[in-house]
Simulated scan of single mutants.
Amino acid sequence: MAASSVPHQEADRLDHARQGTVPLSATRAVTSQGVVARDRWHREAHLQMLNYLSPEEGGSHVQVLDFVDSLRPHMPPNAPTAAVELTAAVNQY
């Protein structure tokens, strides 16, 4: 698989999930792997995952917290995604 095709494939998977043609659990795993393969700490990709997992898009607060909890142990304090946890907390209110 060409490296340049990875972002497009992940975006397509997320679009299909938003349309309800792919289960949320399958999309989360595949999209998370794609984000890590492309750029482990890509801020915008992580923020899009937060939005996708939010209740406004058919997810739940629990799914958002699970996603944030899966990032926390591995994230360096100076990573561009360091504020993802804070963003999730602010979005909840």
Results as ranks from 00 to 15, higher is better:
39 D>H: 13
39 D>Q: 13
40 R>C: 08
41 W>D: 01
41 W>S: 01
41 W>H: 04
41 W>G: 00
42 H>Y: 04
42 H>L: 00
42 H>W: 02
43 R>N: 11
43 R>G: 07
43 R>S: 08
43 R>D: 11
44 E>F: 13
45 A>M: 08
45 A>L: 10
46 H>Q: 04
46 H>A: 01
46 H>M: 03
46 H>L: 01
46 H>V: 01
46 H>S: 01
47 L>N: 08
47 L>F: 11
48 Q>R: 13
48 Q>I: 03
48 Q>M: 12
48 Q>K: 09
49 M>K: 02
49 M>D: 01
49 M>C: 01
50 L>P: 05
50 L>W: 02
50 L>G: 02
50 L>T: 06
51 N>G: 09
51 N>T: 06
51 N>W: 13
51 N>Q: 10
51 N>A: 09
52 Y>G: 01
52 Y>T: 04
52 Y>V: 01
52 Y>Q: 03
53 L>G: 02
53 L>Y: 06
53 L>A: 08
53 L>F: 06
54 S>I: 00
55 P>Y: 05
55 P>K: 09
55 P>N: 07
56 E>W: 04
56 E>S: 05
56 E>I: 00
56 E>V: 00
56 E>R: 09
57 E>L: 11
57 E>F: 12
57 E>V: 02
58 G>I: 00
58 G>H: 03
58 G>D: 04
58 G>V: 02
59 G>D: 01
59 G>K: 03
59 G>P: 07
60 S>Q: 09
60 S>N: 10
60 S>C: 06
60 S>Y: 07
61 H>Q: 14
62 V>Q: 15
62 V>A: 15
63 Q>R: 09
63 Q>C: 03
63 Q>T: 04
64 V>Y: 06
64 V>R: 04
64 V>T: 05
64 V>D: 03
64 V>K: 01
65 L>N: 13
66 D>S: 13
67 F>Y: 12
67 F>W: 10
67 F>I: 04
67 F>T: 01
67 F>K: 04
68 V>W: 05
68 V>Y: 03
68 V>A: 02
68 V>K: 02
69 D>S: 15
69 D>C: 15
69 D>R: 15
69 D>Q: 14
70 S>P: 05
70 S>I: 11
70 S>A: 11
70 S>R: 10
70 S>Y: 06
71 L>N: 07
71 L>W: 09
71 L>S: 06
72 R>L: 13
72 R>D: 14
72 R>V: 14
72 R>P: 11
73 P>I: 12
73 P>T: 10
74 H>S: 15
74 H>Y: 14
74 H>M: 15
74 H>G: 14
75 M>W: 09
75 M>K: 09
75 M>T: 13
75 M>H: 08
75 M>Y: 05
